[in-house]
Computed example of a mutant assay.
Amino acid sequence: MDFDADLRSIQEARELAVRAKEAQKAFAMADQETVDRICEAMVSAAMANAARLGQLAHEETGFGNPIHKRLKNELAAQGVWDNIKDQKTCGEIRRDEAKRIVEFGAPVGVVLGLSPSTNPTATAIFKTLINVKARNAFILAPHPTAKKCTAEAIRVIAEAGEAAGMPKGLVSCVTEVHPSGTDELFHHYAVNLILATGGPGMVKAAHSAGKPAIGVGPGNVPVYVDSSASPKAAAANIVDSKSFDCSTICATEQAVFAHANIAKELREEMKAKGAHWLSKEEADKLASMMF
């Protein structure tokens, strides 16, 4: 039968959640060596495909710079792994003899992740890594406009992980993307935690699902440049950061506040780096198209 898109999405969501639950049970008692071997295999696969996945993300969404997206993928893979690889997540983690406290690492269970259209493949890579490192199962629900590149990123790293011993179904991606399917995952009994990265509506929905959720919505980041700063260095950092990947990272600078003593010099240095100050006519014209 040819079911409607919402029904197909709901059915897929249920199947992925149940499969993830079973896979996580099989993975819950894995030792540290096994977990790290699987993560390293996924990192290697992500690094080998970083440029291709960056290009796919750019082509599907129309956002950003493919070269910069490759760099983001590499940071999400090797950069994240270098930061967490030595952390213990299995068995005894730490012991305080004086307080007679012993801490053991335990997985949360099945984690649902949401990913944005601005950083689709990089988000898929790092969220998978941090969850598998913690022996969680992970299901990713991609943004509708980035579903192909996100699914490909998950396929690449999941296949690498499974080849290294990861249970099949531990890592998966929703392919029948529809709000009804995402909502089904929000409330499914097998899902234990939600990691939401996206627009305000989706993040609010995640926090309203009735289970633990960690949400990161749009950024609106100001930067303050003090009189003690080097205007030339500050200008270079601000312009480089703001222009990286066509400014699709919401953690980049959205507004600059400068001490009066160096404001004029900072402005000139930013212009020299390629920053442009809009006239009122230009600002009105841009605002009429954007908002």
Results as ranks from 00 to 15, higher is better:
S230N: 06
P218M: 00
F63R: 11
A5S: 14
I154H: 06
T150P: 00
N73V: 11
M289L: 15
I157C: 11
G161F: 04
A287K: 03
F27W: 15
E159H: 09
G219Q: 02
A28V: 13
N192W: 06
A48S: 06
F138I: 12
C246R: 12
T89L: 11
E12Q: 15
A124M: 12
K271R: 12
L112A: 02
V239T: 06
G165K: 01
T121E: 01
M47E: 14
I249E: 09
K285P: 00
I125K: 01
T145M: 08
A163C: 07
K88M: 09
S228L: 13
A146Q: 01
A98V: 14
M202H: 08
E97T: 09
A51E: 12
M42D: 03
T252G: 08
R8V: 08
N83G: 04
V111R: 00
K285N: 10
H58N: 09
L195S: 15
R70Q: 14
A122Y: 04
V80G: 00
R135L: 09
A153Y: 01
T252L: 04
L56E: 10
C173P: 00
W81H: 00
P179R: 01
Q32P: 06
M47C: 10
I238L: 09
A141M: 06
T121M: 01
N49H: 14
S241H: 05
M270K: 03
R70N: 10
L278S: 05
I10K: 13
T182R: 02
I139E: 04
M29A: 14
A41Y: 06
P107G: 08
K88W: 03
H68Q: 10
A17P: 03
A20Y: 02
V171T: 03
K147C: 00
L185P: 05
Q24W: 07
T182S: 06
W277I: 13
A164D: 07
A151Q: 06
I262C: 09
D86H: 14
L286V: 14
H276Q: 10
A263F: 13
A106D: 04
L278C: 07
Q78V: 07
A76G: 03
V216C: 02
K264I: 10
F244V: 11
A236L: 14
A251N: 10
G161M: 05
Q78K: 13
A272I: 05
R8D: 09
G210D: 04
G91R: 09
K285F: 13
K280N: 09
A209I: 07
K271I: 05
A258M: 05
V35K: 00
P231W: 00
P218T: 01
L266P: 11
V18W: 03
A28I: 12
Q254L: 08
P116H: 04
R155T: 07
A124Y: 03
E152K: 13
A20F: 02
I194L: 04
R135F: 10
